[in-house]
Amino acid sequence: MLFEWVVPAECPTEQEVVAHVTSLAGETLAAQPLRVRAHVARLDEGREGEPPHFRLELRVGSESAPPRVLESDTCGYLADAAAFIVALDLQSYADVEATVPPPPPAPPPPPVAPTKPRRTRRVSVPRAPKPEIHGGLGADLRIDHASLPALGGGGSVFGFVEYQSVRADLGAALWPPRHAMVPGGGASITLRAVDLRACWSPFSWGGACARAEVGALRAAGIAIAQPATSDGLWLAGLVGLTAQPIAWGPLRVRMTAELGAPLRYPTVTIEELGRVFRPGTPIVRLGMGLEAVLF
């Protein structure tokens, strides 16, 4: 018996009603697959000073059958009446099931003529494709602010490896000389660096990147009596965005925008002239180039 009992809190519980039905009909009949839906509503909700009054709607079997409707001032009486009605319906359901004749046995299958055995072919089930690793080479032109004495351009070449949404680049960049002048002379500043960049690209057109750059900042004196050249360690960190909005087969256009700061750098100083140049913060880099997917 599939029993559904929806009643107010003051009414007997579902377990109590089921136990009453079992005591009336027996455990064998109560175990039959008969659906019972009972709903008790209190009709005096919101009326002060009036005795309680309850209404029972009981459906046994089909959902489309009209419900049996009972009303009483005591919810317990409705619960007893529902248990009695359900017990009678269980007995009627058991009698109907007992009178239904069993279906006739299925006819025996027709004899099958012997056939020659056929050769079977193995069918291979296609496996899901494994994620592939892609890689290639590229080059781009860049504009830099704050690494060198003045706004300037440079270029780089790089190789890259991609796996799903993760990408790693290894590149080398050269920034041509820019002049830093003070009264009495100056210096020509050149930056050469290699960098390692890691990107996360949740979209096919681009994503976010972080870059570590290490190299040498070279200063050569100009317009002074005894010019000299020296190199200093350059270390910088940058973060930014990259986009690949256009592609032609294996070729893709790449655009980057980055902000960063120098972590270690030399200060260019000339005797008798003082400090000539010191890199600034923040570093701003913009780049645009072309890359080719080779595998």
Rank of each mutant, 00 (worst) to 15 (best):
P104S: 13
A19R: 12
L286I: 12
L196M: 06
L34M: 01
E258T: 13
V18D: 00
R55A: 12
T281F: 07
E71I: 09
G280C: 04
G138I: 03
P262V: 10
L137I: 15
D44V: 15
T13Q: 11
A216H: 09
G237C: 03
Q164S: 15
R197Q: 14
Q15K: 14
M255Q: 06
D73K: 14
H53W: 12
G152Y: 02
A168W: 01
L88M: 05
I85S: 07
E291C: 13
T120E: 14
S204F: 09
G215F: 03
R197C: 11
F160L: 03
G152D: 08
L259I: 13
G280D: 05
T74E: 13
G215K: 00
P282M: 09
L263D: 06
A65K: 03
P12K: 03
V161D: 07
T267Y: 09
G46L: 03
L148C: 09
V161E: 01
P227N: 10
L141V: 13
P110E: 04
P104R: 11
H145Y: 07
I246G: 08
R59V: 10
D73L: 09
L151K: 09
L148P: 00
L294Y: 05
L137Q: 01
W5F: 12
G289E: 02
R211Y: 04
A38I: 11
A187G: 11
A223Q: 14
G280Y: 03
D44G: 10
S204W: 11
C75Q: 08
V276D: 06
P177A: 14
L70P: 05
V182A: 14
V18S: 10
T256A: 04
A150M: 07
F203P: 01
R68I: 15
G280T: 01
L2N: 12
E97Q: 15
P129V: 05
G136T: 12
E162F: 01
G207R: 07
T13W: 02
D169W: 07
A168H: 05
T115L: 07
A150K: 14
E97S: 13
H179R: 14
G207L: 08
P67I: 05
G61R: 04
R127L: 06
P177N: 12
R127Y: 02
G207E: 09
G207M: 06
W200H: 15
R37S: 13
D195C: 02
V123Y: 12
I246M: 12
L238N: 08
G46Y: 02
S23Q: 15
L238V: 05
L290C: 03
A30I: 04
L233H: 08
G289N: 04
A19L: 08
P107N: 09
I222H: 01
G280W: 00
V60S: 00
G186C: 04
A25N: 01
V166R: 14
M288N: 01
P250R: 12
L286T: 10
P262Y: 08
I283S: 05
A9C: 08
S156H: 06
S230F: 09
W248V: 09
A173F: 00
G159A: 15
L263M: 14
A236R: 08
R278F: 05
F158P: 03
M1D: 02
R264C: 08
G138Y: 05
V268D: 06
L191C: 11
E71T: 15
P177H: 09
P131I: 09
Q244G: 13
P126G: 10
L191R: 12
G49Q: 03
R211L: 07
L43P: 05
R55Y: 04
A198H: 06
E162I: 07
I189C: 07
G138R: 00
P245N: 09
V253G: 03
